[in-house]
Design a protein around this nucleic acid. Structure first.
Lengths: 223, 223
DNA sequence: CGCGAGAATGGAATGTTGTTCCAGCGGCTC
DNA sequence: GAGCCGCTGGAACAACATTCCATTCTCGCG
């Protein structure tokens, strides 16, 4: 009986790539990117690091799998609210924005490896709509990657914020940046000074959407 | 005399932040990002790692300083060919593109920390021209960061290529990506398949410029 | 001229990390 | 039951960023 119980336990809690990825995501979300080590992961899964390596090639693959897991659910959710063209693009883009905001470590992953599996889902989702918009063949690639750049941009921004000590308030962070900007030489950096003033109280989501709209307007003009 | 000679030598080859940064850039350019370790740096400077730490806070600061060093020279060079508005923006942008292509490790640095000193130079350079373009106050920030996103996008792409084993041919790299794309499920990724066909023989610089032009066109439309 | 304080140096030591290695266990097939 | 194989857990390893410290060098002051 003891044996059978143990076996059941084993089966129930059997190690698998999926279970590993879920544990990794939990650590990443709860304690940040730096806290994800194979030791921490092994502890949380009550096993050794060697066992994890049997399921996952290396840390990069683990992070890629975790990112893909999140992005897949983003696209799945977005796919339900089926809209068309412009609105569809905005919906996908905002879905990405929210995902990156909720899991900032994705930002580092995406900007570090933009052609990884996960982003292809987004490329596909956006590209189809751009195509449906009637963009000429020759400009398809450029228009789609321009939209992707908006996403990579916000990803980079959140990746930077992610590296901060845990629990830093967003407003404090923005204030610190504005502070640094205003300390620059006014004669040399007049424009940056100008921007610093409106940096606090700045809405990321709005900026992101404005960027997307700008690109969409540009696409309209070449259609 | 021996003493004086030794002292002179010391003076000539005295360690300084500048000399350290130059050595770091040399290693980064010659052997890639992964090769830049404090050991390698100490060896190249014929000193110990402790001495380096006296001049540089940590590795992040070193990379930031190296990046800033390059970006400063980019802006200096661009400033000479003084043009206006659209052309000035394109000139700055292309200068950045060329810099990232020549020193791909900058890509990783920029996308990892988009608000670092170095990028502010670019922000300033582009922002002024956007302002001169007559963009309304409320859209200034958004328009400028949208242009920056194009640069961050190409930075991320080169950062990914940088991580590859040394000496990988660009065409081979592109072919490998196209190969991966065509192996995706055609039903699920029709658009990616479509793009894969035109991925080899694809001109990065042109794509970059097209993205910038798209954003510029969008800016025109809200002016 | 000497001498002392602080700047600067070089290399050893420390603590983590990703990764590899291996001895063994459990279930499966003959 | 014997033997193989997928899988496990944890020890061992190499590399790294960073810290520490004993020593040397420089320069200004008495």
């Amino acid at each position: 009986m003891a044996l059978s119980t143990k076996r059941t336990d084993r089966r129930t809690e059997a190690l698998s790539k999926e279970r590993i990825v879920e544990a990794a995501i939990h650590i990443l979300d709860a304690e940040g990117e730096r806290a994800l080590t194979f030791r921490a992961l092994a502890t949380r899964l009550a096993t050794g690091s060697g066992a994890i390596y049997w399921h996952v090639a290396d840390k990069q693959a683990l992070l890629a799998a975790a990112t893909d897991h999140i992005l897949a659910s983003v696209m799945a959710e977005v796919a339900e609210r089926s809209t068309l063209n412009h609105d569809a693009i905005r919906t996908v883009a905002l879905g990405m924005f929210d995902a990156i905001e909720a899991h900032p470590w994705i930002g580092a992953q995406l900007s570090g490896d933009p052609w990884q599996q996960g982003l292809l889902r987004i490329l596909e989702g956006i590209g189809r709509q751009v195509q449906a918009l009637g963009v000429p063949e020759s400009a398809l690639f450029n228009a789609t990657t321009a939209l992707l750049n908006c996403i990579l941009g916000v990803a980079a921004q959140h990746a930077a914020a992610e590296r901060l000590p845990r629990g830093t308030e967003r407003s404090v962070y923005l204030a610190a940046i504005a502070e640094r900007w205003t300390q620059l030489d006014l004669a040399e950096y007049p424009f940056v000074h100008h921007l610093a003033a409106q940096l606090p109280g700045h809405d990321d989501r709005e900026q992101f959407l404005a960027g997307v709209n700008l690109v969409l307007a540009g696409i309209e003009s070449i259609r």
